[in-house]
């Protein structure tokens, strides 16, 4: 790209806010009542992290892998890529995240959700925000309920809840699993910012808190 310094963030925005939020409305209408299932799965993740039954790492990774694959295909590839050609290149990253989660869950000693430090507890709080608070946002920002972003259906709450759960995780693959959700939230936050949407700070804040929690843990070591 020539004269790159003359470009503003807004220059990369290919669609209007109306089109963006209607995309969630259409996706919700097409996916309903899967929302109930994905929300139940999200709550089950939190319970699994708290109670840690046998093979909890496997089941948590399996659920997250399935939902990343689903969101990457049903929302990013099938809807969002239609109005933003760059998303066609991003959607496979959700597939890669699903694969990494599946590998982490299947490998012996790959993932255990056994961290109970401050970062781990903060993670559970972030996970609950992604699960419970995100679907409640539309009226706060003057949008219809039908545009709600739901965990396992829309990418932002899926990424946020995943990061929260991962903060409670230990295992060799864990550092790698943060990258894609964090990068997604950065991209999403910047997109919302370019749209002039007041919700832009939410994905950015979730990503920042996650990074800060990881940094705190490293310092505390």
């Amino acid at each position: 790209m020539s004269e790159w310094w003359t470009y503003r963030l807004e220059d990369f925005l290919l669609f209007s806010p109306r089109v963006y939020w209607r995309m969630f409305e259409l996706n919700n209408a097409a996916s309903w009542p899967l929302h109930l299932l994905t929300l139940a799965a999200g709550l089950a993740l939190v319970v699994l992290v708290l109670r840690r039954p046998r093979r909890h790492g496997f089941w948590i990774a399996l659920v997250l892998a399935a939902l990343f694959a689903f969101v990457g295909w049903s929302f990013l590839r099938s809807r969002y890529a239609a109005i933003n050609w760059a998303i066609a290149y991003v959607a496979p990253a959700f597939g890669l995240q699903a694969l990494l989660l599946a590998i982490g869950g299947a490998a012996r000693g790959g993932l255990a959700f056994d961290r109970r430090d401050i970062a781990g507890r903060l993670g559970l709080l972030i996970a609950v925000v992604g699960l419970v608070a995100y679907p409640l946002l539309p009226p706060l920002f003057g949008r219809p309920w039908s545009s709600a972003e739901v965990f396992g259906i829309a990418p932002d709450p899926t990424a946020i809840t995943t990061l929260g759960v991962l903060l409670a995780a230990s295992g060799g693959l864990v550092p790698l699993l943060f990258a894609i959700p964090l990068l997604w939230l950065l991209l999403s936050g910047l997109t919302l910012h370019a749209m002039g949407d007041p919700q832009a700070w939410l994905p950015l804040l979730a990503a920042a808190i996650t990074v800060a929690a990881l940094a705190l843990r490293r310092i505390a070591r």
């Binding site: 925005l13 290919l14 669609f15 209007s16 109306r18 089109v19 209607r22 995309m23 259409l26 809807r79 239609a82 109005i83």
Partner: peptide
């Protein structure tokens, strides 16, 4: 530019 990029939204 932007205005006609409405994806598959039948209303738009």
């Amino acid at each position: 530019w932007i205005t006609f990029n409405v994806g598959d939204d039948p209303v738009l």
